[in-house]
Design a protein around this nucleic acid. Structure first.
Lengths: 336, 336
DNA sequence: ATGAAAGCGCTAACAC
DNA sequence: GTGTTAGCGCTTTCAT
């Protein structure tokens, strides 16, 4: 009867209260009536022994673990902690805990992490990965575990998708600049306009077109997703015969680089060149001038993901793949 | 025999391979010899069925969950993701996963999180909290779960402690400034010199004393742990009859505020006033001038914590509370 | 309103 | 080298 680590088990509580384990169980989760007197004795016994139900045993019996798995490239990347928190905002109150695994964006580790999640009997998986093919998800789907993919675009069959509204928020950013009177608005994006970057470029084009501003292809610079990349891209744009008066960057690091480049050439930001970023990383409010940017709604994405997961787990939602798109928020600061 | 969610269980593998469940088990974790031929058949059956052992059941049987709990105030605070990653660096290869809970620094939630960890049968707990008293840890200790406390100073009985070397690193920072020829070195710390702040002030004093530089009490400013606080503290210091030529700040946000204050007064950094931070947050390298700072060794702390936990779990270490102190690293950039 | 017994999926004695 | 049996701690029929 004595259990490992000296932890009391349900039988000891039952013995002390003079009832059966069954009754203790029901007193605890109220699935059938227990007389008030009995309940009191049980509760007292629990208190006295410091009993805490074994969630692992309960899970084994019930066929669910009250655990969800979060599979991400690297928790150290500032986007993911916020995402994780958003998940917990919703999952915690529902009684779920979250187990986190980093994959470094490597496909082998992603597959391995997925296997581990199955082994651990998680009730749902939130995953933000790049290299996973539909094949890799087969085992998870077959195991009947709901999966929500975070970010990315192409939805896998049987997998829900939550991501930010890249196109819409780029359009919103562009409209903000247009309202500010800027007319030669450039866009500094990554090496190739694919994935989110493509959406953002599309939104930018849409907004310009709406406003009747011609879209000059020369004003889209392809470069690296880094501070140096941003500086380099803006450097090239500023050498154009008709340089831009405003620049939208695909992320905040690039925007910081853009400010560097402007400063190096003696230009004032936003006086001579307005700069907008994307994401609203912590540093965005700390640099000088503080960055005007579109806040990446990481926390909202996490929450939406958690809600979807809970619905799938409870069977409230049963249809085919769902796609949830979360709008980004404009954060006005000094750079634009 | 068929299991939930269509997941195959060990019995099905056994049936397909024409052996007993025991043999499958041993083929899998090699605790007793299995003939090569049998092993092959088992492995083939596993492959064919896509079998993945149920870690929950295994854990129930074995009395360990291969899970450790991480209890922190808020994963959104940039220190903790790095810590979590450090833990995983060591825990992952050892087969452990990490379940993370945020407490918002509230004592009730901390207690609740600890209870949850016991219920979930975690094999160890890493916790970084403020309001937990020894009493709150009683249940965990009684349950025989190893606990390592992260940061903080006073070690609780039966609880190991890992933290950064605040005193030593403050001394190192001060020595760096002294080597740079600065002689009137100020320190901007939090509201009261308690906890880590006190250690840092002590290290600062030690280094000055070593160098034969008089320690002027006026040069220690007490203020808030924020950007505004840093600006305010430095503002006061600069109004002194003999203002400092260098300032050490208790964290990077305050250092950024210190730079603000200097700039507002037309002072150049580091020309007129050298500024040093603590922590090396991401923004430290992004602001202008980039901050010279003492890097908070969060990842190393996480690793050390994980090592300690594993040793406690395996029983390699059995003595009384251990204390591990991790040195911080000087990161030279522009501000000093 | 309460108990006894079976079983979730696995592994560790204890056989042979 | 392999199988049978019991049991980890819990919840849930099925009885009473």
């Amino acid at each position: 009867m004595a259990s490992r680590g000296g932890r009391p088990r349900i039988g000891q509580v039952a013995a002390l209260a003079g009832v059966s384990a069954t009754t203790v169980s029901h007193a605890l989760n109220g699935r059938r009536p227990v007389s008030e007197a009995t309940r009191r004795r049980v509760l007292d016994a629990i208190e006295e022994l410091g009993y805490r139900p074994n969630v692992v045993a309960r899970g084994l019996r019930a066929g669910r673990s009250l655990t969800i798995g979060l599979v991400i490239p690297d928790i150290t990347n500032p986007f993911y902690p916020v995402l994780a928190r958003g998940l917990q905002d919703v999952l915690g109150p529902a009684g779920y805990d979250e187990i986190v695994t980093n994959t470094n964006g490597e496909r082998d580790l992603e597959r391995h992490a997925l296997d581990k999640m199955i082994s651990r009997q998680v009730d749902g998986i939130a995953f933000a990965v790049f290299h996973t093919h539909a094949d890799d998800l087969r085992p998870v789907i077959d195991a009947g575990i709901p999966v929500v993919r975070l970010g990315g675009r192409q939805s896998l069959p049987g997998v829900d998708l939550v991501h930010s509204d890249d196109e819409g928020s780029a359009a919103e950013a562009a409209r903000y600049l247009l309202r500010g009177g800027f007319r030669r608005i450039a866009f500094v994006c990554g090496p190739a306009a694919e994935g989110p970057a493509a959406e953002r470029v599309a939104g930018y084009r849409t907004a310009l077109a709406e406003a009747g501003v011609p879209v000059d292809p020369e004003l889209v610079a392809y470069t690296e997703f880094s501070r140096a990349g941003g500086a380099e891209g803006v450097g090239r744009l500023l050498e154009l015969p008709e340089p831009p008066d405003a620049v939208m960057c695909a992320n905040d690091m690039m925007a910081i680089g853009a400010v560097d480049a402007a400063r190096d050439r003696g230009l004032r930001v936003p006086g001579d060149l307005a700069v907008m970023g994307f994401d609203d990383i912590e540093a965005a409010s700390l640099v000088t001038p503080a960055l005007t940017t579109m806040a990446n709604p990481a926390r909202e994405i996490g929450r939406a993901c958690a809600r979807l997961l809970l619905e799938r787990i409870s069977g409230t939602v049963t249809g085919p793949s769902t796609e949830v798109i979360i709008p980004a928020r404009l954060v006005r600061r000094q750079s634009a």
